[in-house]
Nucleic acid binder design. Sequence first.
DNA 1: TGATAAGCGAGACGGTACGTCCGGTCTTGAG
DNA 2: CTCAAGACCGGACGTACCGTCTCGCTTATCA
Lengths: 199, 199, 199, 199
Amino acid sequence: MIHDVTNRPDVPPRPGRPRDGRLDDAIVRATLELLDERGFTGLTLAAVAERAGTTTPAIYRRWSSKSELVLAAVFRTEGDDVVANTGDLATDVRTMVRWSLAKFGQPAGRAALAGLLAEPVGDVGARSDQLALVWRRTGERLADAVDQHEVRAGVDTRLLMTLLSGPALMAAAVFGATADDEVWVDQIAAAVLMGVQST
Amino acid sequence: MIHDVTNRPDVPPRPGRPRDGRLDDAIVRATLELLDERGFTGLTLAAVAERAGTTTPAIYRRWSSKSELVLAAVFRTEGDDVVANTGDLATDVRTMVRWSLAKFGQPAGRAALAGLLAEPVGDVGARSDQLALVWRRTGERLADAVDQHEVRAGVDTRLLMTLLSGPALMAAAVFGATADDEVWVDQIAAAVLMGVQST
Amino acid sequence: MIHDVTNRPDVPPRPGRPRDGRLDDAIVRATLELLDERGFTGLTLAAVAERAGTTTPAIYRRWSSKSELVLAAVFRTEGDDVVANTGDLATDVRTMVRWSLAKFGQPAGRAALAGLLAEPVGDVGARSDQLALVWRRTGERLADAVDQHEVRAGVDTRLLMTLLSGPALMAAAVFGATADDEVWVDQIAAAVLMGVQST
Amino acid sequence: MIHDVTNRPDVPPRPGRPRDGRLDDAIVRATLELLDERGFTGLTLAAVAERAGTTTPAIYRRWSSKSELVLAAVFRTEGDDVVANTGDLATDVRTMVRWSLAKFGQPAGRAALAGLLAEPVGDVGARSDQLALVWRRTGERLADAVDQHEVRAGVDTRLLMTLLSGPALMAAAVFGATADDEVWVDQIAAAVLMGVQST
DNA sequence: TGATAAGCGAGACGGTACGTCCGGTCTTGAG
DNA sequence: CTCAAGACCGGACGTACCGTCTCGCTTATCA
């Protein structure tokens, strides 16, 4: 019987049996489901394995720990949807806020954030390649804004990043805001823009 | 020999042996220390018990879980230092930002937030009396601002709360800002004020 | 309202409120019942207290530990029924064997024995006044037999005691023999008598 | 590096990681030591684990309770030393008495019996494979004696077993007899033999 | 009669020990 | 080198229970 094992792009073929790409997806999907159902604390790797139809060692071959798995599962993105650099700051800010709400507005996102804060590591992104990518792209877009003097003097990239992601995170975590709540997106984006734009 | 076990104020004595008030203090103190040393994940109730000179059951009699203990330990405040309602919004906003940075700028604060997010519970404040107090006071002060039209139309209390605490959290968690960083306090407070004040 | 609290004999009246004699009975009764239902390990002082309609401190005022309570409850006897010194050794041996079977043939007796063996104490009787009384009376009766040359030379009191109580205990504990099993009483008594009687 | 973990014989390898055979030994050894030092009540599974250099779950994987562990540890025998069926009843009875004294003459043996009695279970041997073996061999030897008419009519196997082990237990538990006390061995064996042998 | 002293129910407390859950590792046998 | 299957090790957890203690009250003896 011939079945395509759906392997990712074209990595130079390593010796031995190749990894079953469908397992990656099944594991991630199971993780997200269980994260929504039980939260970070209630998540069990055994449960993930069972729902994904595999075993724990198969998970550990892919991610080195529970937190890594959660991060990878939640921040699975191609990166393009985070910041569409349209050239218009207002539009892009709304996009970023909406992205943050989308991520943190669901239980899985809260769980991922919890995992992120729970360990005493300073550098965000050192924990997840995907998260690092998002962070870097956001930074680049905002650095542009600073360079183009779209924001007033005294506002730097780092401040912009906190102003954007922080309120979105809080709104999602505390008040249950989601990406569908256009009111929240509007209000946060508006306040940030008014707070930083050059006069 | 009768020795006073340092019991709290004068509550009408409940039946049963009263709790040893010194244990409460010792447990909270040990929790904060260990939180700073090892973070939320690394925190063990057994370790807390050992350092506090007691045992885990004594902790469980007081708090029902690790997250509750952490919340109680971190948000131990009289509530007065959170918002000094001076009547001047700019001053009070700076105070609140500084308070947020103070809390989230230390590992213990991050850990508390992690504990809050790790379990799938909706209502903040339903988890900790002390946190609820802080939250309520902050809300009252900001509701005043809304009533007095110190902020422009379209800005409500909840939005204000996210704008205040969110960036402070991010600055602390990602960039290592602390309450001593007057630059961070200034910048965040300024941006928020400019973003919401009535024209 | 005048109710006789059924106090035991005439002890020189101590100051303070006298003990409620009915509690003693209720506690002992509850202990025996629960011992039969759950065994020594499964016995809880809280359960005893509840069934006796009282509280644990009332129990601890009377017996200093769980094992003491169990011993006292099981070996409650006036001592007269242990050895009726009829002058006829055969009769008295049968009585003693029957008494042993009666005690150890019920779950409560097994439990008491377990409690006795579980702690590293050499001297039987040092643990329970009542047990000590039984033991002493048995010894006295058998010493008589030795003195009267009812047993052959080389058989001493201590050997007699082990020969009497040991098999009864084993029969009860392992094979479930009870005092009603006249076959067991007969066989054990007969074997012992034949084994020790003077020719 | 591959190191042989000293696994028992050559059983057809079950799926899963094999058990570390050295832990079994260490646990049993620690149990016996602590039993002698502190008795059954004073024995703690945590203490056993610590001395054996492992943890409690490892113990629970092997034995389901404290009593089971104690039984297994104490009655670790090949069974051959219990009854050397020499054909001569007198010799074999002495051997059995000596074996009983050896077992019950040390705290560990008493503890095992305590564990056996502490829980309300009927069938001895259903609790420990090793004990069952001992019990069965003893029974077989004595059944022989009955078949060969070495004992008088009316004496059956079960009675013989109680007569043998009971006095030994009592002598050991109450009077501190050990297997080295040839006097005790002689006296008990003699009395039993005279009590049961055919005329 | 009042003071002293011990008992009572009620119930919580401190701490030892328990038994379990689960994260992460390892083994076997097959592919 | 991967897979499924499954057991193992040990850190940490949350609980059961023993024995103690405090409270507010009752019941006795002694002054």
